Each structure stands twice: as C-alpha cells, then as structure tokens.
Simulated scan of single mutants.
Amino acid sequence: MKISDFQTKDVINIVDGKKLGQISDLELDLRQGRIDSIVVPAATRFFGMLGGGNEVVIPWRNIVKIGADVVLVRLDDAKPHRAEDNEAANR
C-alpha cells in the first residue's frame, strides 16, 4: 500500500462514529521500519482557513481496520494537538 492510498481514505472513530477527516501525514519509526501513527488535521471552521496547525495524532495500535474506502480507529479521546507542541517536545 502506498502513502497516497492512505490519503484518500476517510478516518472514522468507531467509538462515536464521527468522521475525523483524511490522513495528512504519517509518523515513522525508522529504526524499526514501521508506521508509529497517522496524522489527521483537526476539524476547523471555515474549511480549514483558521486551523492554526491543529491535528489529531492516532497511534498505529488504535487502528482497527483499513478498508477500501475508510480507516476505522478506536479513540476514546480525540483531542487535537498543536503542531508547535509536537515540535517543542522533540527538541
């Protein structure tokens, strides 16, 4: 499967049935050669124009099923994370 294949799938949280969006990025573990998590832009007002860099990071272990059109995930608490917070934590 290609990364571009992931980006066309809708991400659905099976806990509440909400559509989270589409995958915008992947976090990789280069040492282990695997995907650590998927990144979905958080829902914003005005079609993403006022997003401010918010995103939902979903650990790979929370992916329940990857289907032809959707990725089903289990998230009890789907809080958006600011991109700047992630960068600060990695310093």
Rank of each mutant, 00 (worst) to 15 (best):
D25V: 02
D25K: 06
D25E: 13
L26N: 02
L26E: 01
E27F: 11
E27I: 10
E27H: 05
L28G: 00
L28R: 00
D29F: 02
D29W: 03
L30Y: 12
R31L: 13
R31G: 06
Q32N: 14
G33Y: 05
G33N: 04
G33E: 07
G33S: 03
G33L: 07
G33V: 02
R34Q: 14
I35Q: 02
D36I: 03
D36L: 11
D36G: 03
S37E: 09
S37R: 14
S37Q: 10
I38D: 05
V39P: 01
V40Y: 07
A42F: 11
A42S: 10
A42E: 11
A43R: 11
A43Y: 14
T44V: 10
T44C: 15
T44F: 09
T44Q: 14
R45D: 13
F46H: 09
F46V: 04
F47K: 09
F47Y: 10
F47L: 10
G48C: 02
G48W: 02
G48Q: 00
G48Y: 03
M49P: 01
M49K: 15
M49W: 03
M49H: 10
L50Q: 08
G51M: 08
G51P: 04
G53E: 08
G53S: 08
G53Q: 07
G53D: 10
G53W: 07
N54Y: 15
N54D: 15
N54L: 14
E55V: 12
E55D: 09
V56P: 04
V57G: 01
I58T: 14
I58H: 02
W60I: 14
R61I: 09
R61L: 13
N62V: 01
N62L: 12
I63Y: 02
I63M: 11
I63S: 06
V64E: 15
K65Y: 15
K65C: 05
K65E: 15
K65M: 09
K65R: 15
I66L: 01
I66K: 03
I66H: 02
I66A: 02
I66N: 01
G67N: 06
G67I: 02
A68D: 08
A68M: 09
A68E: 14
